[in-house]
Write a protein that binds this DNA or RNA. Structure first.
Length: 292
DNA sequence: CGCCAGGCTAGCG
DNA sequence: CGCTAGCATGGC
């Protein structure tokens, strides 16, 4: 394995690996101790995480101002791209609206960044996310990897890639239900099939946010909210504001005048309140409300 | 037991 | 268009 260090002092606005990976943005990084989501360690912990990318294994952990990595490739460009290390978090933090809830959320998780996941695993994870707790979404993705992914053994440890669209399309609904995907099983299978057959793919999704938000809903199991999650956590549209149950609660309690009835109009109204980087504000507020 | 969790689909008016 | 029943599973 190759290895290296990314100095965090070189990044604008600090970095926190644990809150970035355990805030419900991504479900493709496993913590080496096998646990997930705030259990054991608390934020700023120095746990190892691992994932696979293009058939290569990447491990990383943070120790204070050093992001250490070990991988079967040079992981630096992958980490920079997928962990948002190029985002100017100093400017994003400075532009956060002067609003009590938003300021508290940004202060609570300094260094949390928005991930950029590969398209297919992101799509499948958020199709699975409907009416599910974060821990269960993670368990479902792990089950998909271990059942349909390819195994890679490095230094005596076995890792699993995320399955290809073709492999998931070839699974049966019954098999997917046996992995406890519930009513999401046919959504996963059919959406994978759409990509495998080429009827809708990442390449057919428009480049602009609104076009992408609409086009993604051609997939089965993808509505306004899941489309916004894929826009933000894979396609880089940081103006997306997924309206989930936690954000709906925030609207009721803090921004009732933003409730315009429909999803799109409410999201537009909330964008006016969330400042220059709406997706970052949304991600911090979501995580703050959910994890407090 | 009931309620809820990063909602969506299909069917109706 | 908007509205709603039904949908799997597991934690509390």
């Amino acid at each position: 394995m190759e290895s290296g260090v990314i100095p965090i002092d070189d990044l604008a606005g600090w970095f926190d690996l644990q809150s970035t990976l355990e805030s419900g943005q991504t479900f493709r990084w496993e913590r080496a101790d096998g646990r997930t989501y705030e259990s054991a360690g608390g934020y700023g912990g120095s746990n190892w995480y691992h994932t696979t990318h293009d058939g290569e294994v990447i491990r990383t952990r943070q120790r204070d101002d050093r992001l250490e990595w070990e991988a079967t490739i040079d992981a630096v460009p992958v980490l920079i791209d997928q962990l948002g290390l190029d985002d100017d978090l100093t400017a994003i933090r400075a532009a956060a609206p002067d609003d009590a809830l938003i300021q508290r959320a940004f202060d609570a998780y300094r260094g949390m960044r928005i991930v950029r996941d590969p398209f297919f695993p992101c799509l499948i994870a958020f199709i699975c996310s409907a009416q599910m707790r974060l821990e269960r979404i993670f368990e479902m993705q792990r089950a998909l990897r271990q059942t349909y992914g390819e195994s890679i053994t490095v230094d005596g440890t076995t890792y699993y890639t995320f399955p290809t669209p073709e492999r998931l399309a070839a699974a049966t609904e019954r098999e997917l239900r046996e992995l406890r995907l519930g009513y999401r099983a046919p959504y996963v299978r059919e959406s994978a099939e759409m990509i495998a057959t080429g009827s809708v793919t990442q390449e057919t999704i428009p480049d602009d946010y609104e076009g992408a938000h609409d086009a993604l809903q051609a997939f089965v199991g993808v509505g306004d909210k899941v489309a916004d999650c894929v826009c933000m956590f894979s396609l880089g549209h940081l103006e997306a504001i997924p309206l989930d149950t936690w954000i709906q609660t925030a609207i009721e309690e803090y921004y009732p005048e933003c409730d315009r009835g429909s999803y799109v109009e409410t999201a537009d109204a909330l964008r006016e309140r969330f400042g220059r980087y709406p997706g970052y504000t949304q991600t911090y507020v979501f995580h703050y409300l959910r994890a407090r």
